[in-house]
Design a protein around this nucleic acid. Structure first.
Lengths: 338, 338
DNA sequence: CTGAAAGCGCTTACAG
DNA sequence: CTGAAAGCGCTTACAG
């Protein structure tokens, strides 16, 4: 039914072995035959069947990727960079969304393993609940964690150095005169939630700042707005609100302004990630830029190293982030409140 | 090496045929055997090999998807909805980014065909340059176009009704007192660029409005900002700026405000798509909401119908959009310029 | 209802 | 350098 190497072999008058070798470029075929085979392949309209090749070669050339939420603006840029990197080695990306559910995540990983992916890139939903399935996955394929990670896994990880990032942010607001800061972030159930909060506490202590209050919810705009309402209702505003990510910060800024407070003149606000949203709002957001391109590239590199050598020691790669200063902490700057 | 149905068969003391039938649930196996086989499978740690199954069954259960740019905020929500819909039938999504290049798009499609995808969902980069490869693709698999489409293809399509959307927008600004409108959109090389512009022209004529100027670039914030500078430098502001998508509108609003012009008090501005960005800016954007969930669901439905019956007539499904009114056209509303 | 056998389309030792 | 043969792990007519 489909055009196979047998058809090409018949057309070229050679064996299927020769066709396979000529087409795959394994250099053990006479140059004139290679030419003849390619010619024949073109004439009969041959198209490579990657499924058959995968079954025989025990290698699919497909990498599975599981993200907590593709519509979270942090992930598309990562996905794009991973896809681009994989193309350089003719591999494809099979993308899954775990919808922030450990249960969905488990099913998606099982499906990817069943499809014999050559490797798995994952940003685990939950630092506890994701551990078990990841341990099972690593028995079948190479696994690298990106951005988030699960506890107690002997698994590679690449992400941003939350400690450095939060230190940069806290020093920055202190340099701009802040003495009392509020922390608004997410619950500790994801590794990002926990690590950023811990980093934030240490950074405020180190910088000699007072922590006015700590509000924990989700990495979302809605939570940021809710937290801002809470701050306002307490009637005891801090000098700065340091947020766990950009979306929270956007919610905070918008809600503060709704209550007639000016950012940055009354309160400084900072984010984390530098997603596109950081420049959409007004004032534009001072935030920490994650090296997303590098995270993607390094993740694929770690995966390939792991594929080449299973005995490699576990590597955790924390990349340095960068402070991006914008209107939300710069009184009088172009993007500040009018 | 891997655990196969042969291992399960040995463990259960039955033939591999029986194992295959028992595991796949093809109801022609005695109930007690089904039980015994499942038990054995669990004991030996059997995991289904989807690659082998795909080769034999001539069906991979994988759908390929190609989008022009995953980091364009319009697409993640579509991707998410498609992935969710496919899961209901145990299928996986193989995602590719064509990076707005017809050449990359062609290579990605070829790779997906080589991987024997059961179907292809695509938002073609270019209404002209994408046609040829799509014609080739449809000879090998079911193809459905989403959002954008290529000309002269006998291919199904599902997307938004640009005509209705633009009519809603134009009537809305007229009802708010606009008499002269500027159109800022993208070049005509993509179907969206062309159709929205045509729809916009007809709508302004029908509404009896005067078109002050027409500026065509890209679907980007930067282009919106550039277009706004052009409008300001002409020193002849229209009553409303109707934009081809939300990103353009965001660029326009921000640049107008930078020049001291108030939106909506001096000029009304509208977008198209209702991506998250529409609510991030200030004033929030009046725009056209695309039924993205429905587009995704219908695309998979069309694909399945096409898989079931190749002879089906070509279907173009234009879904009705909805006008979402926000601060950028509502003088004095909460989100308006301060 | 169950089993033996063929075969999906390819790659890769093994001979020559 | 080239070919014949085995086999990747499964499904599915074909017998019984």
């Amino acid at each position: 039914m489909a055009v196979t190497i047998h058809d090409v072999a018949r057309e070229a008058g050679v064996s299927v072995s020769t066709v396979s070798r000529a087409l795959s470029g394994a250099r053990r075929v006479g140059p004139e035959l290679v030419e003849r085979v390619h010619e024949a392949a073109r004439r009969v309209g041959y198209r490579h069947n990657a499924v058959a090749r995968a079954l025989r070669a025990q290698r699919t050339g497909v990498i599975g990727m599981v993200v907590p939420e593709i519509s979270n603006p942090f992930f598309p840029a990562i996905v794009e960079a991973v896809e681009r990197t994989l193309q350089e080695s003719d591999r494809e990306l099979m993308l899954c969304d775990s919808r922030r559910s450990p249960d969905v995540e488990r099913r998606r990983i099982q499906a990817l393993l069943g499809r014999q992916v050559d490797g798995l890139l994952i940003s685990p939903v939950d630092s506890q609940a994701s551990t078990k399935v990841l341990h099972e996955a690593m028995r079948h394929t190479a696994v690298v964690q990106m951005d988030r990670y699960a506890d107690q896994t002997r698994l590679d990880w690449v992400g941003v150095d939350d400690e450095s990032g939060m230190a940069l942010v806290v020093q920055h607001v202190r340099d701009h005169g802040a003495e009392r800061v509020a922390l608004v972030s997410a619950e500790r159930n994801s590794s990002s939630g926990r690590d950023r909060l811990d980093a934030l506490r240490r950074a405020t202590t180190t910088a000699g700042l007072a922590e006015s209050v700590e509000l924990l919810g989700e990495f979302s705009i809605d939570w940021g707005a809710a937290a801002a309402r809470e701050l306002v209702s307490r009637g005891d505003l801090p000098d700065a609100v340091v947020c766990g990510n950009d979306e929270i910060a956007v919610g905070v800024i918008r809600e503060l302004r709704r209550h007639g407070l000016a950012v940055p003149d009354d309160v400084l606000v900072t984010g984390f990630d530098d997603t596109p949203i950081a420049t959409y709002i007004e004032p534009a957001l001072t935030t920490i830029r994650q090296p997303r391109e590098a995270i993607a590239t390094e993740a694929v590199r770690l995966l390939d190293a792991r594929l080449a050598d299973t005995e490699l020691p576990v590597r955790k790669l924390a990349l340095q982030p960068e402070l991006v200063v914008r209107g939300s902490t710069q009184p009088g700057s172009e993007g500040s409140a009018s």
